Simulated assay, not measured.
Amino acid sequence: MSERSPAPGGLELVESLVNTLDLESEADSLDTAEGRARLGLTQDEVPGARELRESLRAVLLAHAGHPPHREVTPLGELLAGAPLLVAVDARDGSARLGPADGRTLLSRVAAAVAEALVAGTWNRLKACEAVTCHWAYYDRSPAGRGRWCSMAVCGARAKMRRYRAK
């Protein structure tokens, strides 16, 4: 969908999960064995992954100043079920927050969100304003006011619609 480079750090996982559904074509890569394998999912884990994906999308829309696309389980409720673990390196005393259970998608996403909060990058992960898109992207604009996953596609369409409306 977008020509942007992936989000930094663990946010790439969040971005990848949200972007498993192409709203315009309705293609869901979680329907394929290859798509599930990319996220380390079994078929039985797909319903939970879809619920998590849409809760994340709602938060990313909020990051961009847009209302939720539909009623979803609040992300905080989902992430509350994913315990995190503080790992401290005995050699240098450095610490990092990680998933207590690194195998589950929910735990990996919770750790990615925690990492992004500490790094100050969480609010830069957004969802495209276009209602037929809502693709996740990392906003690298200096002011952090990006609105579309791609200026060449969704941004151009929005500008053309405004121009034609005049």
Rank of each mutant, 00 (worst) to 15 (best):
N123W: 05
E71V: 09
R108E: 13
R36E: 06
C154Q: 09
A116E: 04
G120Q: 04
P6T: 10
A49T: 02
K126W: 07
V72H: 11
S94G: 10
Q43W: 10
E129K: 01
R140N: 12
L11V: 11
R162F: 01
A114S: 02
R4S: 15
R164Q: 08
G40Y: 01
A100E: 15
A116K: 03
A156N: 15
C149F: 07
A136D: 01
D89L: 00
A33F: 00
A152I: 15
W122Q: 00
T20W: 03
A62L: 03
E12T: 09
Y137E: 02
D89R: 09
G93C: 08
R70D: 12
R36N: 05
P68G: 10
G93D: 11
L39G: 08
R50E: 09
E26M: 10
G65K: 04
L56V: 00
L60G: 01
A27S: 08
L52D: 01
E15Y: 14
L21I: 05
P67R: 13
E3P: 12
G155F: 06
R103G: 13
L61N: 01
A7E: 10
G144Y: 09
E115I: 01
L79W: 04
M160P: 00
R103H: 14
E51P: 02
V153C: 12
H134C: 04
R157W: 00
V131L: 10
G76Y: 06
L39D: 09
L97K: 06
L52A: 01
S2L: 12
N19T: 11
E77P: 07
E24F: 06
C154K: 02
G120P: 02
A64I: 00
A116S: 11
P68K: 02
C128M: 03
D31T: 09
L105K: 13
L30G: 01
A90I: 07
G35Y: 07
N19K: 08
T42A: 15
D92C: 05
V86S: 09
A58H: 00
S94P: 07
C154E: 11
Y137F: 14
V153L: 13
V109N: 07
